[in-house]
Design a protein around this nucleic acid. Structure first.
Length: 994
RNA sequence: GCCCGGGUGGUGGAAUGGUAGACACGAGGGACUUAAAAUCCCUUGGCCCGCAAGGGCCGUGCGGGUUCAAGUCCCGCCCCGGGCACCA
């Protein structure tokens, strides 16, 4: 009759599986609720206790909503394409499909043990052809669409062609395009279009397609034959292998997310997402209003974007990004060598680097001059790497008087600094105030900045030297990857022009290759595939990035087996948007932006009836690991050279590795040194002879010790540690410990990321084995607020385990009044329980309803740690009241079910129910049981609480005040003086000001 | 540098502007037990006065402010974590 979590949990997990308890039906009269977890990538390391945190929270909500009468969609699947599997494949030769399959199976097993109410019948994997068929299909829709600025939505390219045929392409089309491809396309007439050859037409259309091929800057690593992400490049070389990396322009598939910049920005406001996450997206989209200004240079002109056209008369030079196409043409012959050298080095620095080194100013003069559009003055043209090729026009008008970066550049190169605002101290720094008054001569003089901006734009437009413009920081998303383990892009090339594969050819299945590496000529792995062609034409060899499948997967869950459509219209209409989306904040600008982008695109095509994927989003915090660090003697300096005592350079061989108790190391260096001396004498006889002449200086380092070798008081299991260490050495090596005064070896605790390399990973399987899934679930929630990061400390889990045992014992106390134990029609287990049918007391009802109220409200705002605390309070109170009453315990069991579903199911069955507890309606709390007759008022003097006085709640403010003042204790405190003021807040506090 | 979080006992944390430290871990003491485990009870922010009952002072990163009353609101800092754009 003891709480046997293992038996209970296995039993119920089996039943849920066999009975399909959590299958969600697409046809239901019930209202729907869609709870989604961010897609996991099934890594080889399996789950640690940090991973399920969000899943437990979403499972609680899913189960709660079922109790409230909703038809709940709560699916799970795998984002199963990705780099780790590919890298593992390169190392081991194992096909990524195989390792992915194994990893997913392992995930599934671990997830099952936690008792989630997922509808596994809807599981999807992005690497399954029947899933990525539709990822490819959506890609084709993107390829066949353009963004119509008039309709402000994506439209079929066929409409664009019809437009060209009818009226050609006039200026406006080109001017509204944004993003990386923002180059002047050039107007053409209908006749011209009709006269273009196929190639030219396709090239023109590329400029409009939402999935398009264009040259983009990439970090190319010739040695690895691949493109690297910014964070894979360190100091100009690849992070792995240290091979040189160069910035190179390569044809790349991109998605024109920039077309959606404004809508992605506007769509944020109504979403119930964390404000900080919305802000991050706003910053990422980076809308800025300003103007473009054209500065003539010889026959060309340099176009700049500025948010401060009001500072136009403060321009003292122009700066081009090293990548800017006009750099070569603007450079005078005498400057060529210098400029080319600068451009070469600057271009190959990563953007990260260029941006990180704020203090280092670098640049070079091109030798040529631009003309100021208003004054006609000569403006020197410089190249500087503080200007980025990918933002704006890749050129800035430098106003050192109004912009600190320009100021620094001007200072460094001795360029003129012109004051643009009144009261600026330009000798010291630029004046970036937006409320200043412009002081330059001409039409802007005396205007405030905002007025001056408007005026400047008007004047620029009047003389045709520029115009007002909104600029976005957001860039188009690179969509091609030089990798194997991703969705093939359904494109083939005829005469080097990309064409879409017909839909009937989908899925374009990932081909087999002999190796998962680039070809010798540097082509992506798919180029190794035999017959990688379509009707004799070569197929695209890059694959889609990791985020492709996750940009639309939430729709597939609605109708996962549909072979005709990505999901039926009926299922999409029924399930609609995700009601609650839970995941980590690391996805705030990647996944979540693409997710919203694809949703808006599918909405534009009338394929789905909503244009935001998730109404409400919650970021769960990270669970950090608690590492155990053990100091060791890394090095002992002696006057003649250095003797290493650790690692492979261990000498002298007679001296063991010395590990130092953390508490000892914390005490004093002397104590450590003393013990080292003792060990040296012991293990190194020669040392004794020389000891007098040698003064040693030990240096300590720390190693991460497996936390399983450390107890709750940080005491190291030294035998276990020695075993582990010895198994790591190829040659036998002595190990000794410098202990503290108690003879113990302690480790030092540190909170850091939970990871294998830090030996601080806690596996949920181990926790479940010992305490059960219900305890794990409760403890993960009890740890603290969901959104916050917090360290995992297994030692604290006893509290939640004890709670469950106490809860169980409320139903099984043999000390309960001798009433007839309820007969248990449970089909699987017939332990008697001790439950009475007596009417509950007022106190019992109060506990129950206070708990129902708190838990219901807490689930509403995802405050699960406080609900668990309330359950503990309830169990403690009911235990003290010796309550064994069905009328109390039954509703409480339902309330606990979302949190600890196994024990709840078991007790529910024992209470005589034959249906799963998940079908039980949520118990409602009733305020009448919470009403109090009296309240114990804290009586404070000048805000400091001094005593408590109990008064009936029926007392009015004046009566209360009189009663308080009449109290002898209060009188004593007042010492006969009259209070200056008495503040009475009914049911709160009485404050007496003296 | 900028943006976003966060700083409360030994630890995780709780607290609509109204009794700071709920709940839990750990620690200390006790009961039960041959013993252990399990369970139960008491104490547990710091300092001080008192034999005791009890009482006083301090206390939510730091410094100011608003208020009858501030962990909570405002201003100025410091520190930690996360993100990022020298973004024109």
């Amino acid at each position: 009759m003891a709480y046997d979590h293992k038996r209970i949990e296995e039993e119920w997990q089996r039943r849920w599986r066999e009975q399909g308890t959590f299958r969600a039906d697409n046809n239901s009269a019930k209202p729907k609720y869609y709870v989604l977890d961010m897609f996991p990538y099934p890594s080889g390391a399996g789950l640690h206790v940090g991973h399920p945190l969000g899943y437990i929270a979403s499972d609680i909500v899913a189960r709660y909503k079922r109790h409230c009468g909703f038809n709940v969609l709560h699916p799970m699947g795998y984002d199963s394409f990705g780099l780790p599997a590919e890298q593992y494949a390169i190392q081991t030769g194992q096909h990524p499909a195989k390792t992915t399959e194994e990893n997913a199976a392992r995930y599934r097993e671990q997830l099952d043990h936690i008792g989630f109410s997922f509808d596994w019948g809807r599981e999807v994997r992005t690497s399954n052809p029947d899933f990525y068929k539709w990822t490819q299909w959506i890609f084709l829709q993107l390829f066949n669409s353009w963004y119509d600025p008039r309709a402000n939505q994506a439209r079929p390219v066929s409409e664009l062609i019809a437009r060209f045929e009818g009226q050609g392409c006039q200026g406006q089309d080109a001017s509204v395009l944004t993003g990386d491809s923002e180059e002047f396309i050039g107007a053409f007439t209908a006749q011209e279009w009709n006269g273009f050859d196929e190639r030219t037409r396709q090239m023109v259309l590329q400029r409009f397609r939402l999935a398009y091929l264009s040259d983009a800057w990439v970090n190319w690593c010739p040695a690895l034959g691949t493109v690297l992400a910014n964070d894979e490049v360190k100091d100009g070389v690849s992070e792995r292998g240290g091979h040189p990396v160069e910035r190179k322009r390569m044809p790349q598939w991109s998605l024109r997310i920039t077309a959606y910049a404004q809508r992605l920005l506007d769509g944020l406001a109504p979403l119930e997402w964390p404000e900080s996450l919305k802000e991050t997206q706003r910053n990422w989209i980076g809308r800025s209003e300003g103007a473009t200004v054209r500065f003539p240079v010889g026959d060309d002109f340099i176009e700049v974007f500025t948010t401060r056209p009001d500072t136009l008369f403060g321009v003292s030079f122009l700066t081009l990004a090293p990548e800017h196409p006009l750099v070569a043409r603007s450079t005078t012959p005498d400057r060529r060598a210098e400029v080319e050298a600068y451009v070469h080095t600057a271009k190959n620095r990563s953007e990260r680097e260029r941006q990180a080194e704020v203090d280092k100013v670098s640049g070079v003069f091109t030798g040529s001059y631009a003309k100021h559009p208003f004054t006609g003055a000569d403006i020197p043209v410089w190249v500087g790497d503080y200007v980025l090729g990918g933002y704006g026009t890749g050129a800035v008008m430098a106003v050192p008087g109004g912009d600190q970066r320009d100021w620094r550049f001007a200072k460094h190169f001795n360029l003129p600094i012109i004051a643009v605002t009144e009261g600026a101290n330009i000798g010291k720094e630029a004046d970036e105030r937006k409320d200043a008054t412009i002081c330059s001569e001409g039409f802007l003089k005396g205007l405030k900045v905002p007025d001056a901006i408007r005026r400047a734009v008007k004047e620029l437009e009047k003389i045709g030297a520029g115009q007002g413009k909104v600029n976005f920081r957001l860039r188009d998303a690179a969509f091609g990857r030089q990798r194997y383990w991703g969705e093939p892009i359904p494109i083939y090339y005829k005469d080097d022009i990309p064409y879409p594969l017909p839909e009937s050819e989908l899925p374009l299945v990932l081909p087999e290759v002999d190796k998962f590496l680039p070809t010798e000529s540097g082509e992506p792995p798919l180029a190794r595939a035999k017959n990688w062609t379509y009707e004799g034409h070569p197929l695209e060899t890059t694959t889609m990035p990791g985020w492709a499948g996750s940009s639309w997967y939430f729709l597939r869950y609605m109708d996962p087996h549909n072979a005709e459509r990505f999901a039926s219209a009926a299922s999409i209409n029924y399930w609609g948007q995700v009601d609650l989306y839970i995941g980590g904040s690391e996805h705030s600008t990647g996944h979540l932006l693409y997710f919203r982008f694809w949703t808006k695109f599918l909405f534009d095509l009338d394929l789905i009836p909503f244009d935001e994927p998730a109404k409400k989003l919650v970021n769960q915090g990270m669970i950090q690991g608690v590492s155990a660090l053990l100091p060791f003697v890394a090095k002992i300096s002696v006057p003649r050279g250095v003797e290493y005592l650790s690692g492979n350079s261990f000498t002298p061989e007679t001296t063991p590795l010395l590990y130092v108790s953390g508490s000892l190391a914390a005490q004093s260096e002397d104590k450590v040194t003393q013990q080292i001396l003792e060990r040296l004498r012991k293990y190194w006889p020669e040392f004794r002879e020389k000891e007098a002449q040698i003064r040693i200086e030990p240096k300590l380092s720390r190693v991460n010790v497996d936390i399983n070798l450390v107890d709750s008081h940080n005491v190291l299991n030294t035998e276990g540690f020695v075993d582990v260490k010895k198994s790591q050495f190829t040659e036998p090596r002595e190990i000794d410990f410098l202990t503290d005064q108690d003879g113990r070896v302690t480790t030092i605790r540190e909170v850091e990321k939970m990871s294998k390399s830090k030996f601080n990973v806690v596996n949920p399987d181990d926790i479940i084995e010992k305490y059960g899934a219900d305890t794990l679930r409760l403890y993960e929630m009890f740890l603290g607020p969901l959104e916050q990061s917090k360290p995992w400390d297994t030692n604290g889990i006893e509290g939640t385990f004890r709670f469950l045992k106490k809860f169980w014992n409320l139903f099984h106390s043999e000390a309960a009044p001798a009433t007839a134990p309820a007969t248990v029609p449970s089909t699987h287990r017939v332990d008697p329980i001790h439950i009475t049918e007596e009417a509950p007391t007022k106190a019992e009802l109060k506990t129950l309803h206070a708990t129902l109220k708190k838990v219901t409200e807490d689930i509403g705002h995802m405050s699960f740690n406080t609900s668990v605390a309330q359950f503990m309070i309830a169990v403690n109170e009911l235990g003290a009241l010796k309550c064994r009453k069905r009328a109390i315990l039954e509703p409480l069991t339902i309330a606990l079910a979302p949190f600890a579903p196994h024990i709840a199911e078991e007790l529910w069955a024992k209470l005589g129910h034959t249906e799963s507890i998940s079908t039980a309606p949520w118990p409602q709390w009733d305020a009448q049981y919470l009403e109090e007759d009296s309240f114990s008022y804290p009586i404070s003097f000048n805000g400091k609480t001094r005593l408590q006085l109990e008064f009936p709640l029926t007392l009015g403010k004046e009566e209360l005040e009189a009663a308080v003042l009449a109290n002898p204790e209060v009188q004593a405190k007042l010492e006969g003086k009259a209070p200056k003021k008495v503040i009475v807040v009914p049911k709160r506090i009485v404050n007496i000001v003296v």
